[in-house]
Every structure is written in C-alpha cells, then in structure tokens.
Simulated assay, not measured.
Amino acid sequence: MDMLLRPTGFVDSPFGHDGKVARLAGGLCWFSMVELIGLDGEGRRQSVELVPVEGIEDRLDGTAAERWACLTRAARPLSLGERTIPLDQPQVMGIINATPDSFSDGGKHEEVEAACFAGADMTGAGAAILDVGGESTRPGAMTVWEGDETDRVRPIIERLVRGGNAVSVDTRKAAVMEAAISAGAHMVNDVSALTWDERSAEVVARGGIPVVLMHAQGDPQTMQDSPRYDDVLVDIYRWLEERIEAVVAAGVSRDHIIVDPGIGFGKSVAHNLELMNGLAIFHGLGCPILLGASRKRLIGALSGEAPADERLGGSIALALKAAEQGVQIVRVHDVPETVQALKVWRGLRDQALTPKIG
C-alpha cells in the first residue's frame, strides 16, 4: 500500500524532546506527529493513522521511507544570478504584473519605468525574488499572444537584472521563457507546470535555471466553472509527483524544481482551505514549496466579499499559515507588510529556539 506523510503536532522547540520531534525540511519548524495516509492501488485514500515521530522510521519502507527522508532533509539554497537565496526560513517573492488586466493591480506596472521602480521598492523592503509576468491568468482571462507578452516583460527583466535583483519570469510560453532567459531571468514560474507549451521543459532544461511547477485544474477561461477532486490533497500531491518525474525525464535537474499547489487555480474555497491546512504534506515531494495566495478570492469569500485591494489582512494570515508549515517562498503583492509579519514570526521562532539556561 502506498503511503503519504503529513507532518502535524508542531512544537515550538526541539529542546527536551530528543527523538520525539523532527525538523521539517531543514527550516524553523519541528513536528511531533505524522498523519500516515494509506492509498489503494488506484491512489485513493484508504486509511488514515496518526502516529508519533518517535519510532516512525521502523514503520516505513520503500517509497514511504523516501518521502520521510524528503520531509526531514534541508532544502538547498537557490542560486539566482549573483544572489544566493537560503531556504531555511521563509522568503518573499514580490509580484510585478506588467499587464493591463491583472485581477489585483492591472495596469499599475504596465509601464517599464513604473514596474522597475516598484521592483526596486520591493527589493528594498525585503523581497528576495521579483516575479515578472506579462499575461494575466486570473479566472476568465484570455490568452495573450507570445509576442505581446515578450514585449511586456523583456525590458523590465533586463533593467531589474542590471540592478542586481533576483528575477523570475511568470509565463507558460516557451518563446517568452527563451526571451526572458536571454534578458537575464534567473527562474521560470509556470502556472501550467510546463504542460501548456510542449517546448517549455526543453527551454528550462537548456537554460539550467530553477522552475516553479504549479498545479492548476483546467485553463484560466474555465478553471473555476466547477472544480472537482476525489481528494484534493492527495490528488494534487500525486499530480505534482508525476510532473516532477516528467520534468526530470525531460532534462531538468531535480534540484532546480520548486512546487506550488496552486491556490485559486481550479479550486473551490473548500479546496483552497484544505490545501492550506495540509501544506506540510508537500515537503514529501523533496522540493521547496512556493505559495501564491496573496489577495486571492478565497480571502474575499471569507470576509464579506472584500475586493482584491482590501485583502491585506487575509493575505498576511495565509502567509503566516504557510510559514508555520515550512513553506520556503511566499509570492505576494504586499511586500513590506508581509516581510514585517514574517520578521515578527521569525522573532517568535528565534525566542522559542533559544536554549533556556539555569
């Protein structure tokens, strides 16, 4: 029987709990319990058992043992141009939408000058990575011609890279990826997990740069019509697992892969909430986790349909929920506020991890 492992029973500090807790992905979180999710031959949830960390390795073999090793193994730092981004604590990725129709800030960064000033402000406020996109993928958004998308992102990427920033390109098109990489982009963030364009995996492999594989059910035009899953946590885990293997087979280094469960992309509010509660399970894939929940409709649905520009509080809450489960990168619109929240979270962790003497 195949088995997934979801860390739970988080504790503030490992001190005094030798052998009873494990460190999650080499970060600042420790857990004392594991939910063992048994799957049948068709990958459906068959059983659930809550077990302590102490002695768990005696219960695991084969694939389950490999997943345990992934859960407790430190993520390697990201090398993005001149910058090395450590992943032993949560990092912030700032969003620069060079589009007229983004769901949250459409048109705000459409001009090159405005986008570059915004990027400089985000880096100054503590963003480790800047993510530049030229096509909206909000629900109902139409596809942008690759030439127009390239014209939107290339000059912004060139200037941001010259300024010494770590820059990612948010695109699902191979031609845009090629143009962005030639302009100096250090990473690709693809909402289709390299499935939308048959050349994209080859482009990323040739570029030798990290890539974010995000889960999405359907395309932007239809993904929110009626999203369905047998078991959203298990289904997305297994889908990402398959995509990782396919992308590695296409020549991309496993060390260059980051995964994103895709909050809001073909998911209902209930699906999104279940994913947020179960984020720690994805460490079992052996790749760093990126979460993009900033200003998503999920927040509005839980707060009287607050519009996108009034979802800061909810965005911070989701970023902190991600940090609590060891997520390494949070992709956000509101960089200064998120960085401040994570600094306070880090201060709490540091205090908890300070040995008590006497």
Results as ranks from 00 to 15, higher is better:
Leu353His: 06
Thr72Trp: 11
Met223Cys: 05
Glu54Lys: 11
Gly81Gln: 08
Ser136Thr: 09
Gly251Leu: 01
Leu279Asp: 07
Thr123Lys: 14
Ile316Met: 05
Ser200Lys: 01
Val167Phe: 10
Ile236Gly: 00
Gln340Asn: 14
Val330Trp: 01
Arg83Leu: 12
Arg44Leu: 13
Gly94Cys: 02
Glu305Asp: 14
Asp309Val: 13
Thr123Val: 15
Val330Gln: 02
Asp131Gln: 04
Glu49Lys: 05
Ile299Asn: 00
Met177Asn: 09
Thr150Met: 12
Ala125Lys: 04
Lys108Cys: 11
Pro288Trp: 02
Ala64Asp: 02
Leu71Pro: 03
Gly278Ser: 04
Ala166Cys: 04
Ser253Trp: 09
Val167Thr: 07
Pro227Ser: 05
Asp170Lys: 00
Arg152Trp: 08
Glu111Tyr: 13
Ser315Pro: 04
Leu50Met: 11
Gln217His: 12
Ala64Ser: 07
Ser253Asp: 13
Ser200His: 07
Leu50Thr: 11
Ser253Val: 10
Phe15Cys: 06
Ala293His: 04
Phe15Thr: 06
Ala25Trp: 04
Leu28Lys: 14
Trp239Gln: 03
Asp190Trp: 05
Gly133Trp: 01
Lys343Trp: 13
Ala98Val: 09
Lys267Thr: 09
Ser315Tyr: 03
Leu4Ser: 08
Arg254Phe: 12
Ile258Ser: 04
Pro77Cys: 05
Gln351Pro: 15
Asn272Lys: 04
Gly43Met: 00
Ser102Leu: 09
Pro77Thr: 09
Asp197Lys: 05
Val34Glu: 05
Ala201Phe: 06
Val48Cys: 13
Ile37Trp: 09
Ala175Lys: 14
Gly55Gln: 06
Ala183Asp: 11
Ala25Lys: 06
Ile258Glu: 01
Leu298Asn: 10
Met214Ile: 00
Arg152Gly: 00
Glu305Ile: 11
Glu149Ile: 06
Glu241Ser: 12
Glu35Trp: 04
Trp145Asp: 15
Gly43Leu: 11
Thr137Ala: 07
Pro86Lys: 01
Arg73Thr: 13
Leu353Asn: 04
Val211Asn: 01
Arg346Lys: 15
Ala115Gly: 08
Asp334Thr: 08
Leu285Phe: 03
Phe265Ile: 08
Trp68Pro: 02
Gly9Arg: 09
Gln340Lys: 15
Asp12Lys: 10
Pro7Gly: 06
Cys70His: 14
Glu241Ala: 12
Gln328Arg: 11
Glu324Ser: 13
Gln340Val: 13
Arg243Asp: 03
Pro90Lys: 00
Pro52Met: 05
Gly218Gln: 05
Ile258Lys: 01
Gly184Ala: 04
Pro14Val: 00
Gln325Cys: 01
Arg172Lys: 14
Asp197Arg: 07
Trp239Thr: 10
Arg138Asp: 11
Gly147Glu: 12
Leu275Ser: 02
Met3His: 12
Met142Arg: 14
Arg331Val: 10
Leu233Lys: 15
Asp231Val: 09
Thr338Phe: 00
Ile316Trp: 05
Val53Cys: 02
Ile95Glu: 05
Gly266Thr: 09
Arg199Gly: 06
Pro336Ile: 00
Ala193Val: 08
Glu111Arg: 14
Ser79Cys: 15
Ala64Cys: 06
Gly218Cys: 02
Trp145His: 15
Met214Phe: 00
Val204Trp: 02
Leu298Met: 07
Pro52Arg: 00
Gln328Pro: 10
Arg243Tyr: 09
Leu80Trp: 08
